[in-house]
Simulated assay, not measured.
Amino acid sequence: MKNKLSQLERIRARLHDRGMITRNECLRNFITRCAARIIDLEKQDYVFRTEETGADFIYYLVSINGVTYLNAAQRAQMLKENDERLAWFDNYQTPAKV
């Protein structure tokens, strides 16, 4: 028999992967108590920003245990900016002394 993930584990995995989850997405995946699972995560120091869009709610992951969440695109952008900063330092030449 396969190990099945709990509703909380499935929501947590989706949040870590995409940084957001919607109530309708949960319903399509047989998670009927999305808001209750979000509250369970908040008790574990997850922080969310919630947006209501007509007939749906979107839960955006803001931070976990005080650490700001960055999705894959944000992490890639941060690494690119850091590489550019390091390249600047590598190419910097100290002014010649007179």
Rank of each mutant, 00 (worst) to 15 (best):
residue 3 N to I: 15
residue 6 S to V: 05
residue 6 S to T: 15
residue 6 S to N: 06
residue 7 Q to W: 03
residue 8 L to Y: 10
residue 8 L to V: 06
residue 8 L to I: 14
residue 10 R to H: 02
residue 10 R to K: 14
residue 13 A to H: 02
residue 14 R to S: 10
residue 14 R to W: 05
residue 14 R to H: 09
residue 18 R to C: 12
residue 18 R to Q: 12
residue 18 R to V: 11
residue 19 G to L: 08
residue 19 G to S: 05
residue 19 G to T: 08
residue 20 M to Y: 11
residue 21 I to N: 03
residue 21 I to Q: 03
residue 21 I to V: 15
residue 22 T to M: 03
residue 23 R to D: 07
residue 24 N to W: 02
residue 25 E to P: 01
residue 26 C to S: 02
residue 27 L to V: 12
residue 29 N to F: 08
residue 29 N to D: 09
residue 30 F to I: 15
residue 30 F to R: 15
residue 31 I to M: 09
residue 32 T to S: 12
residue 33 R to H: 12
residue 33 R to W: 05
residue 33 R to M: 07
residue 34 C to P: 00
residue 34 C to Q: 10
residue 34 C to H: 04
residue 35 A to K: 09
residue 35 A to G: 06
residue 36 A to H: 08
residue 37 R to F: 04
residue 37 R to D: 06
residue 38 I to C: 06
residue 40 D to K: 03
residue 41 L to P: 00
residue 42 E to K: 11
residue 43 K to E: 09
residue 43 K to L: 11
residue 43 K to V: 06
residue 43 K to S: 10
residue 44 Q to W: 00
residue 46 Y to V: 04
residue 46 Y to K: 02
residue 47 V to L: 11
residue 48 F to D: 05
residue 48 F to A: 04
residue 48 F to R: 05
residue 49 R to H: 13
residue 50 T to H: 00
residue 50 T to C: 09
residue 51 E to A: 09
residue 52 E to F: 08
residue 52 E to G: 03
residue 53 T to Y: 07
residue 55 A to N: 14
residue 55 A to H: 12
residue 57 F to T: 08
residue 57 F to M: 10
residue 58 I to F: 04
residue 58 I to K: 07
residue 58 I to L: 05
residue 59 Y to G: 01
residue 60 Y to V: 04
residue 61 L to M: 08
residue 62 V to F: 05
residue 63 S to A: 15
residue 63 S to K: 01
residue 64 I to V: 15
residue 65 N to S: 15
residue 66 G to K: 00
residue 66 G to T: 04
residue 68 T to I: 13
residue 68 T to S: 09
residue 69 Y to L: 01
residue 70 L to G: 00
residue 70 L to E: 10
residue 70 L to I: 04
residue 70 L to C: 06
residue 70 L to R: 11
residue 71 N to C: 07
residue 73 A to N: 08
residue 73 A to R: 09
residue 75 R to A: 06
residue 76 A to M: 08
residue 76 A to G: 01
residue 77 Q to D: 11
residue 77 Q to M: 10
residue 77 Q to C: 05
residue 78 M to D: 11
residue 79 L to R: 13
residue 80 K to T: 15
residue 80 K to V: 10
residue 80 K to E: 10
residue 81 E to W: 02
residue 82 N to L: 11
residue 83 D to M: 13
residue 84 E to H: 03
residue 86 L to M: 14
residue 86 L to A: 10
residue 86 L to H: 07
residue 87 A to N: 11
residue 88 W to I: 04
residue 88 W to N: 00
residue 90 D to C: 01
residue 92 Y to W: 08
residue 93 Q to K: 09
residue 96 A to I: 11
residue 97 K to C: 01
residue 97 K to A: 05
residue 97 K to D: 03
